[in-house]
């Protein structure tokens, strides 16, 4: 006895041709979707290749060439790197660049203190927040010129302020001992608003319940800060440290304006300033690229170390 189920009936109504057409439609749809997916993926991939992979590859190759930036390249292997190791000005510029990093912890400490102060309900809070942020949106060139005047050894604002408390200030930008600290102070001042803003957001995001619980347990203000606030703002601290190190390693504009010849006894020349000079003034683009790559690798290494340290100290309140 031949019986037919509903399914069989339905199936029987689908001829082989129908099934084939359905498969075809489905395949076409898949192809279309895959095409769109590929197109969406292509944009970032092409961008990555064009703006990251190719420039990086080109930089690596250029660093192994004798190239003046306008003519042909001649492959010289690792000669530029050998030269770099023996170049006292490279080491001096690298040391100066590392020295500038002293400003990072100082700037972060002041920023956090300011953020804690500004998170309280004090009079003129909005005014202060605005004032601290103004340097961030101001032209770096203009700020550098203003600070150049402020650092004047004779009538500069800084020395005048110091003289009020009986200190005979140095000739900041003309003294090899004080030229770098002078630039650090300016950089800290310039970056204060940005760091404070991020810290402020982080401080305000800390759940109030944690502080309330701590208060019930009798925790002091200092304990609350060290056990709650500081750990809770740690991701922001980490972000600021990493980005500040990257930005600090590229310091150029303020040096080029305030001490255009590299400062007294070359005391302010940063590595990027030296790279720029070698590339565009001394027509040694290949050597300059090698130095830039070494700087990039050093920053990468420091960043990776920071990630490791940060991971070790990671915590969650979930």
């Amino acid at each position: 006895m031949a019986t037919t189920t509903d399914t069989e009936q339905v199936t029987s109504t689908w001829t082989k041709a129908d099934q084939k057409a359905a498969r075809k439609r489905s395949a076409a749809l898949h192809r279309k979707e895959h095409g769109w997916a590929a197109a969406f993926m292509a944009a970032p991939v092409i961008g990555w290749v064009a703006f990251l992979l190719f420039p990086m590859g080109f930089s690596i190759y250029a660093s192994m060439t004798n190239w003046n930036g306008i003519g042909n390249m001649t492959f010289i292997g690792l000669d530029n790197y050998t030269r770099l190791v023996q170049d006292p000005y490279f080491w001096k510029a690298l040391w100066n660049t590392v020295f500038y990093m002293i400003g990072i912890p100082i700037g972060l400490a002041i920023s956090l203190a300011l953020a804690l102060a500004l998170s309280r309900k004090i009079r003129g809070r909005t005014f202060f927040r605005t004032v601290y942020y103004i340097p961030v949106i101001s032209s770096l060139a203009a700020i550098a010129i203003l600070w150049q005047w402020a650092y004047n050894g004779d009538f500069g604002l800084v020395n005048q302020a110091l003289s009020l408390v009986g200190i005979d200030g140095p000739n900041w930008l003309q003294d090899p001992t004080f030229a770098k600290p002078a630039l650090i102070i300016m950089a800290v001042w310039k970056g204060l608003g940005y760091s404070t803003l991020l810290y402020l957001a982080a401080v305000q995001a800390v759940p109030r319940s944690l502080y309330e619980a701590a208060s019930l347990d009798g925790a002091s203000g200092w304990k609350k800060f060290t056990k709650i606030t500081w750990p809770m703002v740690q991701p922001v601290t980490f972000f600021l440290v990493v980005t500040n190190i990257i930005a600090g390693s590229m310091i150029f504009t303020e040096i080029n304006i305030m001490t255009p010849t590299g400062g007294p006894s070359w005391s302010t020349a940063s590595l990027v300033w030296y790279v720029w000079n070698q590339a565009f003034r001394n027509l040694q683009m290949g050597y300059a690229t090698a130095m830039a790559l070494v700087l990039g690798i050093l920053v990468l290494i420091v960043t990776v170390i920071q990630f490791r340290i940060n991971r070790a100290n990671d915590f969650s309140i979930d």
Partner: peptide, 18 residues
Amino acid sequence: TMVGALTLAACSGGSSSD
């Protein structure tokens, strides 16, 4: 930060003074 660190070498130098 990773992107910033990676692109540093390719981008350093040649910035305008302002």
